[in-house]
Design a protein around this nucleic acid. Structure first.
Lengths: 358, 358
DNA sequence: TCGGATTACTGAAGCGCATTACCAGTACGA
DNA sequence: TCGTACTGGTAATGCGCTTCAGTAATCCGA
């Protein structure tokens, strides 16, 4: 009794029926089984504390009731990441509602093939990939294999792509529009480069909004970073050096990454440049990071938990083989106005006037 | 070819051996299989892109290579929680190193029995339970069932308990000692109550350190909160009211929860009480929350990622049936001194002198 | 030359469940 | 009375893998 597991067969024997019948009862396959038998089975199962063996069930049915989340390299995309956590919150919530468990699959593997094997080896019924920088091997391999996959916050060229994302183009416009409305014409942009769809789209939106306001965006005003590296103190220092050497110096900065925006905005005052007095800063995502910055950052918000929930919905539809009316879902973005932006001429320039030319 | 999965049998056939031999080769069971055969199997497996079916393997071996993490009620303990995330970071890191995947098991189930069934139904080989408030049903049930379980940051009476925790008693002493060393004698304490071991232990440490300094800790200076509820604006308002009505008013506050400490410290100035000028505040955990507070909070730090790693190590030892030299591991705590503490008489009292008696 | 050990490999059973196909019994209309 | 339909079940197969027990062939020392 104490040793070994209670199997379906044990329940069946205790109830005086065949395993088949017990299985039918326990899975509510209402194949015309009378109440009385049904009760006997249920009672036996409860008495013996029967708990079905999930691996056996998975083997027999081909379904695991689990979905996976692919975590990118811990160095560049950790669980500490606020952005990731807010999406994860939505994912877990919805997955739980649908009685699915969530398996964390770390891309910190010895090669993506191992990860690929784990995923397609039947650990999960489908996978959510949340990516800042796109893993260019895993995603198409999974899609080619016909494995249920939903891309969150990024896209691929693959025709089978399902994705949930924000309207980054509109978000970029929103950010730039806010600054031009305040009167800014010289606006610098920090963004991750064009390989990342969200980066490219945000920049495009920024360009359009600036053009609409009659502002120019020279190439020197645009700076990229290496998304594969965590933002470091050196990165901020370099960015500030870049900023200070621009002529004319921008009166506004749009930074497409929240943590970098905060580091930038919080470091600037130490170099004699005030925010928002001397320069306005707009960030993206608008999580706690922007909220808790000094000063709190005006930020373009993504509905992150909602994105997580939508991604789960889409993935489950795909897993169930349902028709998918909208394979690429885009959420609108909103601007959270805080204290990091002001008009370009609100105050007289101060502090670092001494720096004219090196 | 395109349809259906490549099975071990297919590999075996392609290599001209039996499934047994193929299995031996692929699992490195070096049962005297010559290099030449070995090569043939390996090559066939690679050519056919064989990926073992993990549920089948789990069924046959009884091992899943997965460990679970029990998430508490999302309302009171979400994935957004910095404390949780830093532990999770350590867990994922170590689990990945040991080629284990991490399954997130939400306690947001219809009853803990469902969760219990999922856990013991063979989803995972063992479970980590990270708890702020102790689930009094699940933990003993799992331990009674002989299921591998490690408690993180809490304890149970059960003789089979394995746990990883901090020395909360020493942490409490550290916090109080810091304040008494600065000259404080009237110190208030916010803590979750005695049902939570960490709360009780921290308070005990605080008491001892204060006694050592000859300071009294009247019952009115101690305030508990409901750990099952998220800290709200009303909570802060109530706590501040409590604080302001104490006579004599404490010059120092130790808050055993980081988020509450921050809310308390950031709200105080709005009621005319300056931190640290009028009151010093010490928090616990010392994550980004304390670091980013205004002012940054002096905080008793737990080595959270290290706790996560140690918990995985302990759990894996338990799963493997290895001898466990130290079933209850305690990490020391450290004091991160920031800007929220000063001596009790550093400045003249200011602001809210008007409030004498209602 | 022979018996035992070793090498190289395989057959078959079984992990626990779901499910298909089938069967015995009964009721019922014709 | 027979054929049909329905009720209430069961036997058997298979999911893909591991592993125990066993076998045939070879080797080796005496």
């Amino acid at each position: 009794m104490a040793t070994g597991r209670v199997r379906l067969r044990d329940v069946a024997e205790a109830a005086g029926v065949s395993p088949t019948t017990a299985s039918f009862v326990l899975n509510n396959r209402c194949d015309s089984i009378p109440m009385e038998t049904r009760q006997r089975v249920l009672e036996a199962a409860a008495r013996l504390q029967y708990r079905p063996h999930l691996s056996a069930r998975a083997l027999a049915t081909g379904k695991t009731r689990r979905i996976g989340i692919v975590l990118n390299q811990p160095e560049s995309f950790s669980t500490r990441d606020t952005y990731f956590n807010e999406i994860l919150e939505g994912i877990i919530q919805r997955a739980t509602e649908h009685d699915r468990n969530v398996l964390l699959l770390s891309a910190h593997y010895p090669g993506w093939q191992t990860l690929f094997a784990d995923i397609t080896g039947g650990s999960v019924d489908g996978v959510l990939q949340i990516s800042r920088f796109v893993n260019d091997q895993l995603t198409p391999a999974l899609l080619d294999a016909g494995f249920p996959l939903v891309c969150v916050s990024f896209h691929t060229e693959h025709p089978a792509t399902l994705s949930v994302d924000c309207d980054n183009y509109a978000g970029g416009r929103l950010a730039a529009r806010h600054l031009t409305d305040l009167g800014h014409r010289a606006i610098g942009v920090l963004y991750p480069g064009d390989e990342l769809s969200w980066g490219a789209e945000r920049l495009r939106g920024i360009r359009v909004a600036m053009a609409e306001a009659g502002a120019k965006l020279p190439a020197s005003y645009i700076r990229t970073w290496d998304e594969r590296a965590l933002p470091s103190a050196e990165w901020v220092a370099d960015a500030i050096r870049w900023f200070k050497e621009l002529r004319p110096r921008p009166t506004g900065i749009i930074c497409c990454d929240e943590m970098r925006a905060r580091m930038f905005a919080e470091m600037l005052p130490h170099t004699g440049i005030r925010v928002p007095d001397d320069v306005s800063v707009v960030s993206f995502n608008s999580t706690e990071i922007s909220e808790r910055c000094t000063p709190p950052l005006t930020s373009v918000r993504q509905p992150l938990p909602e994105i997580g929930r939508a991604a789960v919905d889409l993935l489950l539809a795909r897993i169930r083989g349902q028709a998918i009316p909208e394979p690429i879902i885009r959420f609108p973005m909103h601007l959270d106005v805080r204290e990091s932006c002001a008009g370009p001429c609100d105050r007289a320039p101060a502090g670092d006037k001494a720096v004219l030319r090196p």
